[in-house]
């Protein structure tokens, strides 16, 4: 029994950090699901909204010595305001335009943080950021529990949205915008609103990531984050709230936790060949899914339900 325990939890720090990353991808994936899978907004700049929150949190904590809660509020606001502006810009663009514009936003955020030195620390970095509480050796585990809770709330919210009139409005906007417009639906306001709200969530997740890494660098905001989130969501099922969770388990969970931690690969292979092989497998999986199951492993969103009589409408 002890041997099994040691085998599974022999490297707790690595396991916890891998799970942090997993939960971060799942959280961002759930928010991207509301943008892309429900409202049809192809946000290719997830790293930008998340990064804005991460750095806003870091700047507040390190540069201005602000407490945890106000800093988290600023991080959420940073993502939200950036989402609001981006939403307003992209509301009337076509799909290609939305992809280009959101990627541009993420690039601007990255370049701004990378080139600025006094506030963000530029390439030197910004730190250190500590957990807002200390419960000894269990602090990182407690933080992980909080992260699980936050992701759980996001999942609950996404599922509620699916069942609500607001969700109906989002789906109508995403699937047939001209028709929704002609039905007196406030399409632009809806898109701006959903971008602001979900980007605020991404900003908050960025803020929560600060204490995990302790030190912030611009390289943490590269397109790799966006690609990981999109890959997880597309593999799992972009139209389903649980899609990001399933996809993240298959990607980050399988490759960055299970294989790295439990498959005895030679160190050289793990450091050099593994990252490249992982990307190749991700790419092949994406092609496979897009060819044979375009809506991901979980498939199409579930709208059908049992209605007990029309009086309930």
């Amino acid at each position: 029994m002890s041997a099994v325990w040691d085998y599974l939890f022999g490297s707790p720090a690595f396991l916890i950090f891998g799970t942090y990353t997993l939960m971060m991808i799942v959280g961002l994936g759930i928010l991207l699901h509301l943008q892309l899978g429900v409202t049809g907004i192809g946000n290719f700049g997830v790293a930008g909204f998340w990064g804005a929150g991460l750095y806003a949190f870091g700047i507040m904590q390190v540069t201005y010595d602000v407490g945890f809660w106000p800093a988290l509020l600023v991080a959420t606001a940073a993502g939200g305001v950036l989402g609001l502006i981006t939403g307003w810009v992209i509301a009337d663009l076509d799909d290609d335009g939305v992809l280009a514009a959101t990627l541009a936003v993420a690039t601007i955020v990255y370049l701004a943080i990378d080139s600025e030195k006094d506030i963000t620390g530029g390439r030197v970095g910004l730190g250190t950021i500590d957990f807002p509480f200390d419960v000894g050796k269990r602090t990182d585990l407690a933080w992980l529990a909080i992260l699980f809770g936050v992701v759980g709330v996001l999942l609950w919210y996404a599922r509620r949205v699916h069942r609500s009139p607001y969700g109906r409005l989002l789906i109508a906007t995403g699937t047939n915008e001209p028709l929704a417009r002609s039905l007196r639906k406030p399409v632009k306001r809806t898109k701006v609103g959903v971008m602001a709200l979900t980007s605020a969530g991404m900003g908050a997740l960025g803020g929560l990531y600060g204490p995990i890494v302790h030190f912030l660098f611009p390289t943490q905001l590269t397109v790799a984050i966006t690609v990981s989130v999109i890959t997880a969501l597309v593999l799992g099922g972009q139209q389903r709230p649980l899609g990001a969770f399933v996809g993240a388990l298959l990607t980050v969970g399988l490759f960055d936790i299970v294989i790295k931690l439990y498959v005895p690969l030679p160190k050289d292979l793990l450091e050099h060949a593994f990252p490249v092989t992982k990307q190749i497998i991700f790419g092949a999986l994406l092609i496979f899914v897009l060819l044979f199951r375009p809506l991901g492993f979980l498939g199409r969103m579930r709208r059908e339900r049992h209605v007990k009589g029309l009086s309930r409408v």
Binding site: R168, N176, L179, A180, L183, Q239, R300, R303, V307, V313
Partner: peptide, 28 residues
């Protein structure tokens, strides 16, 4: 493209409804 393909028939009708909630059931 006269419908919202991802919504159910009932939801399509609900999206079209500009009437009050109680009257919407009767309208459906």
């Amino acid at each position: 493209r006269g419908v919202f393909p991802d919504l159910t028939v009932l939801d399509n009708l609900r999206v079209g409804g500009l009437v009050a909630k109680h009257a919407r059931g009767e309208r459906i």
